[in-house]
Nucleic acid binder design. Structure first.
Lengths: 331, 331
DNA sequence: TTGAAAGCGCTAACAA
DNA sequence: TTGTTAGCGCTTTCAA
């Protein structure tokens, strides 16, 4: 059996209260007694039972993070950053993955809350008033990332829409006349929270329209989306740019184009988004949008802890971080 | 304040025991009472306090995983797999990152144990009898991955050494005569657990020696290791192969070689290890070693839960999984 | 400076 | 079928 405070107390011939004072640097204890207890704790290999402490304290010094998976390189980097910052602030981390399943996400949240995490960083796939009511019912500090929910919820991220307007501007200025946009299915719109992807698309369309350019074909990234791409005829003289809503798609398209023997950017331009770290190994260098993924992690963890420790009824002004277009050779 | 079992009991005019029976599907309760309680629970938005349950049950239905970081793509995939399997088995996941700092790792372990996780998946950077004694003192089921500790500790992984012997064989058979090996610093040998990297190197040297080939230069991956690489003259007629102990290094070297205007594999061969998922976007296709990283995750989680539920004194025979050389165009 | 005791929310054994 | 009660290991308040 594990050694408890009572055992220590008995061993040292003092009361549990005194042991507690010694162990937790509380005042009102003679130095000698304290040393005694500490020595005994070492000797008997005492370890505090944090679940017991949590029960009385009502908090666990633990944060929860909810993501849908770790396939996208950025999420791993984010998680890494969150863990780092959390530990720096004296917190540890529960992780729960949802597989993009809204119900699953709720279960994860439920679990985290019941386990009394002190706060949650949430990349949600849910949305809507009902869900927000549900979240409120959890009565726990929450920071949202990537997918925005509403002003009610502190959000750490970048101005997705503005960034894609800039992208449109950037590409048009480089002389491209014709455009193709590739992004994941938005058809779950209303069913699943696609905020980030939606904003990027809207931003791109807005950007084009500001330049007086008509809406381009939008290809949805299914299993066989490359066939759809094939159907759109890409003529060199058209000066076509393929814009992808994330780098992973752009890389696939690049492979496809290479396979077709098309030269980038001579025959067709290509643009990604995310600036994932492996891009540095890819030729030609992909032009992309960079945002400070690690900062998002740090900021989210920091804000969350702030909310936890200084009351979570204050919805801080959500932070938007800077992005920038990273010029490569692909457009 | 949160609604407790007592509140529910009062509300329904029954005892806490009865509420417990209703909530947890225990026998010996009238269906009607049960329905009543369940309805009240829903109405009052009752949530069980899992820390309280943990305190009396002595377990948390939580696993801990200790990694050093998530920079290597494989670790993220592994973590993803572990989370998936854990959840499937009814467990949730604590994650702790150690930054390759042995002391930090101990603190992480300490924390997980004190938080009463039911078991730990450990990618350790520690080693040695003393550390193993320390681990034993934690009295908790542990599965080791990647870095082997000793027979005492169940291990899930592949036969690193054999795999690199095979690599040597493979490369020599393809006509290469001259070799350069690149791997992370092994100088911490004895201070830090470098099992995986050590085994790969040993395997490679053994493989060469079996072919009667002398020990090749080994370049340690520092910040300026490329300078060291520069000093080794690579003559085309020498048929040189550069073998890297992981894909990330190979990709850097590939960049370097491309920058030098050297052709792969015509001028020099290049080999990686890990088969990280981004390789599919890299030209030329890197020849590498693939192992089932997700299986390692599943297996580790499964074995751990098995140990937890069926006693952890039985050290199961450690599992070694299959690897294979994936032929690319780089060697 | 120390001890005694109540209680965090839940489970489980025993009694009714 | 239900109620009562004694903990789980810790913190905290009050009394000595």
């Amino acid at each position: 059996m594990r050694v408890t405070i009572k055992d220590l107390a008995k061993y040292c011939g003092v009361s549990p209260g005194t042991v507690d004072r010694a162990l937790n640097n509380r005042p009102g204890i003679k130095l000698k007694t304290k040393k005694n207890v500490l020595e005994a704790a070492r000797l008997l290999n005492y370890r505090p039972d944090l679940t017991a402490r949590s029960l009385v304290k009502g908090r666990t010094m633990t944060l929860g993070i909810v993501l849908f998976d770790l396939y996208n390189r950025s999420f791993a980097q984010l998680l890494n950053a969150v863990e780092l910052k959390a530990r720096e602030l004296g917190y540890h981390l529960y992780i729960a993955l949802t597989d993009k399943d809204p119900e699953n996400e709720k279960q994860c949240l439920e679990y985290l809350v019941n386990h009394k995490v002190d706060g949650i960083i949430l990349f949600t796939v849910n949305q809507g008033k009902e869900f927000e009511e549900y979240l409120k019912g959890l009565s726990i500090p929450i920071i949202t990332i990537f997918n925005f929910l509403s002003e009610q919820w502190e959000y750490v991220g970048i101005q997705e829409r503005a960034s894609m307007r800039d992208v449109a501007d950037y590409i048009v200025n480089r002389g491209y006349k014709s455009f193709i946009y590739i992004c994941p299915p938005l058809k779950y719109l209303g069913k699943s929270n696609m905020y980030t992807q939606e904003e990027r698309l809207k931003g791109f369309l807005e950007g084009l329209s500001m330049k007086g350019i008509a809406e381009p074909p939008v290809i949805i990234k299914h299993n066989d989306y490359l066939k759809a791409l094939e159907k759109v005829e890409i003529k060199i003289e058209n000066r076509t740019a393929i814009v992808c809503s994330c780098d992973l798609y752009a890389l696939e398209v690049m492979n496809y184009l290479k396979g077709k023997g098309m030269k980038i950017p001579e025959d067709v331009g290509l643009m990604g988004y995310d600036n994932i770290d492996v891009l540095k190994y890819i030729t030609p260098k992909l032009t992309t949008v960079e945002y400070p993924i690690e900062c998002i992690g740090y900021k989210a963890a920091e804000s969350l802890v702030h909310k936890i420790e200084h009351g979570y009824f204050t919805t801080e002004k959500s932070a938007t971080l800077n992005y920038k277009i990273v010029a490569g050779e692909s457009i």
